[in-house]
C-alpha cells in the first residue's frame, strides 16, 4: 500500500468502527494488485498441477494405453494403495527417514553451532569446512557415498578390513536391515550444516548480559544453556525442524541415486516410490493418488510451519 493511499484512507478508518471484509479489501486494493502477478503464476504452475493430480488419482492407466485414454476407477486407486503391503512399508520408511534424519541433523547442528559460538583459533576455517556437505551437489554426494559404502570395494570396508577390525567389508546398502540407516547417515551428513547455520544465527540473539548474569548466579554450562540459551532458540529451532522435516519428507536424490529404493523396497520412501510408480511403471493414477495423500501431509506440516513462523515473529516483536 502506498503512503498516499494510506493517508487518503486514514479518516475513513478513523470514522468507521469495524470495516467489513469487502471494505478492507477495497482499502488494501493496491496490495492485491501488487501480489496479483504472483498469484496468477501460482495458479498456473501450482494450482493446475494440483487439480490435475487430484483428477488423475481417480483414473487408471494400463501400460498399453496412453495417458489420455485413461479409465475412470473412482476411489479404487486409494483403496489399492491403502490395502497394499508396500504402502505401509514405504510409509514406515518415510516416517523413520524423516523423523530420524530431522532429529539427528538438528541435534548435530545444534551441537556444532554451540561449539562454533565460542571464539577459538581456526573457527572460521572450521565453519567453512562444516558447510561443505550442504553446498556440494546432492547428486555428487550420493555417488561419492555410494562408493564409500560399496559392499565390495568401498572405502569404509577397505579401511576396516585393512585394520583387521572385520574379515569382510560390512554390508551397508545391499542389506534390507542396514540400507535405511546407512542412507540416513548420508542425509544427516548433508543436512546438519543447514541446522548449524540457522542455529548459529539464532545464537546471536541470545543476550550476552543474561548469560553473564546466569554465570554470576552460579549456573553451570548446562543450566545456562537450558534456562537461558535454549529458550531464545525456540523460535528458530521450530522453524529449522519444520524446514528439515518438509525437506526430508520430499527427499529424492540420495535414496534414488544410491539404491533406487532397494534392495527389496527397503529404502523406498514416498517420493522415490511415487517416481517409480509414475515413470518406471506408468501407473499415473496410483502415483497421483499417492501424491494427493502426500500433499495432505505436506499441507498439514505447512500449516504448522506457518503457525510456528508467525509465533516466532510475534515473539521477536513482543
Amino acid at each position: 500500500m502506498t503512503l498516499a493511499t494510506r493517508l487518503a484512507d486514514a479518516p475513513l478508518r478513523e470514522n468507521s468502527k469495524e470495516p467489513g471484509v469487502l471494505q478492507r479489501a477495497w482499502i488494501n486494493r493496491a496490495d492485491y494488485l501488487y501480489v496479483l502477478p504472483s498469484i496468477v503464476v501460482m495458479l498456473i504452475v501450482i494450482a493446475y498441477p494440483i487439480y490435475y493430480t487430484i483428477e488423475l488419482s481417480f483414473f487408471t492407466t494400463p501400460p498399453s494405453l496412453q495417458l489420455r485414454d485413461k479409465i475412470f476407477v473412482g476411489l479404487d486407486n486409494y483403496s489399492l494403495i491403502l490395502t497394499s503391503d508396500v504402502f505401509w512399508r514405504v510409509t514406515a520408511n518415510t516416517f523413520i527417514w524423516t523423523i530420524v534424519s530431522t532429529f539427528a541433523a538438528f541435534v548435530l547442528g545444534l551441537g556444532t553451532a554451540l561449539a562454533l559460538n565460542h571464539e577459538f583459533v581456526g573457527r572460521g576455517v572450521l565453519r567453512a569446512i562444516l558447510i561443505i556437505p550442504w553446498v556440494i551437489s546432492a547428486v555428487a554426494a550420493s555417488y561419492i557415498w555410494k562408493w564409500i559404502y560399496h559392499s565390495n570395494f568401498g572405502v569404509i570396508g577397505a579401511v576396516l578390513v585393512s585394520l583387521g577390525i572385520t574379515d569382510r567389508p560390512p554390508n551397508f546398502i545391499d542389506s534390507v536391515s542396514t540400507v535405511l540407516p546407512s542412507l540416513i547417515v548420508v542425509n544427516v551428513w548433508r543436512e546438519f550444516p543447514f541446522a548449524m547455520i540457522m542455529l548459529m544465527a539464532g545464537l546471536q540473539t541470545v543476550p550476552d548480559q543474561l548469560l553473564r548474569a546466569a554465570r554470576v548466579d552460579g549456573a553451570n554450562a548446562w543450566q545456562s544453556f537450558w534456562h537461558v540459551t535454549f529458550p531464545h532458540l525456540q523460535g528458530v529451532s521450530t522453524v529449522t525442524i519444520l524446514l528439515l522435516a518438509v525437506s526430508n519428507f520430499n527427499s529424492f536424490i540420495i535414496p534414488w541415486i544410491m539404491t533406487g529404493g532397494g534392495p527389496s523396497n527397503a529404502s523406498h520412501i514416498w517420493i522415490t516410490h511415487i517416481y517409480e510408480l509414475a515413470f518406471g511403471r506408468q501407473r499415473w493414477g496410483i502415483a497421483s493418488a499417492y501424491s494427493v495423500l502426500l500433499f495432505i501431509i505436506m499441507m498439514t506440516l505447512g500449516y504448522f510451519y506457518v503457525r510456528a513462523l508467525s509465533g516466532a515473529e510475534r515473539k521477536d516483536r513482543g
Binding site: K146, R168, P169, N171, I173, D174
Partner: peptide
C-alpha cells in the same frame, strides 16, 4: 555360498 559380489543388488 556367498560366492558372488555382495554388491550385486546395487
Amino acid at each position: 555360498d556367498k560366492s558372488v559380489p555382495v554388491s550385486a543388488l546395487t
